[in-house]
């Protein structure tokens, strides 16, 4: 039983690694910054006395994805649960004027996720077991001028996961879409909002439970499902005039 967490230097991913390691599973954490991933793995190992390995994962090195997954399997065995926690919010403004910047955001948040998920799906289907967890965003539920490059990539990822879930259902492979609202991470640090911000460790516990409960689409904090259903219900003729 092993758990792969990609994008391990995010606080949520770090906390998730704790949850699985303290539950007795072998964890492999990977990130573009391999040193940082190693620090996360060390922390998980010291605190839980469990097994946590680490390695380098470059989301946009599509050609290297297969070899990367092979190396993970060599270290911790077949991947039971794979969590895609990597992402890059980019800079909306920069993405508007510079296609390369926009493409980078799309590649990290969407293209890379497709590449990795297809490889994972192939091996999990073969074993007729496994769970793929994709961390998408409420930003993908409706396009807004303030972050539509990132939002569209996350939205595409959610749509992709929906299709994958449909395809893998009969193979017994679980696919879960996580849509996170405000979490107290680097992304929201310094944000002034009246909406409560969730603590990363609470988020990790919720995702851990939802994954084990084989949930399909999971909003956290839960009230974001309500917020987004209202946001989605606003007629486009009105929505286009808003500055959200």
């Amino acid at each position: 039983m092993s758990v792969l967490i990609l994008g391990a230097t995010s606080r949520i991913a770090h906390e998730l690694a704790h949850r699985y390691a303290e539950n007795g599973q072998s964890v492999f954490v990977a990130a573009r910054d391999a040193d940082e991933a190693a620090r996360v793995a060390a922390d998980v190992g010291v605190r839980t006395e469990g097994t946590c390995a680490s390695g380098r994962f470059d989301a946009t090195d599509f050609a290297g994805h297969a070899a990367f997954l092979d190396s993970v399997r060599e270290t911790v065995g077949p991947i039971e649960v794979a969590i895609l926690a990597f992402g890059d919010m980019g800079d909306q403004h920069a993405s508007e004027g510079d296609f390369e910047a926009a493409r980078h955001v799309i590649d990290v948040n969407y293209t890379a996720a497709v590449s990795i998920c297809e490889l994972l799906a192939a091996s999990m289907t073969e074993r007729a077991a496994g769970s793929i967890v994709g961390i998408a965003s409420v930003a993908g539920d409706r396009g807004r001028q303030s972050n539509y490059i990132y939002g569209s990539a996350k939205g595409a990822f959610a749509l992709y996961l929906q299709g994958l879930r449909n395809r893998l259902f009969k193979s017994g492979v679980h696919v879960m879409t996580v849509k996170l609202g405000f979490v107290d991470t680097r992304m929201t640090y310094g944000l002034k909002t009246g909406i409560p911000i969730a603590a990363p460790d609470a988020v990790s516990r919720a995702i851990f439970d939802a994954q084990r409960g084989r949930s399909d689409v999971f909003y956290y904090p839960h009230f974001w499902r309500g917020i987004m259903s209202v946001v989605k219900a606003i007629p486009e003729a009105a929505f286009k005039r808003l500055s959200l």
Binding site: R11, R39, V40, A42, D43, V46, R47
Partner: peptide
């Protein structure tokens, strides 16, 4: 506060 990794014991 977020630089809170235990590195070795």
């Amino acid at each position: 506060r977020r630089l809170d990794r235990m590195l070795a014991f």
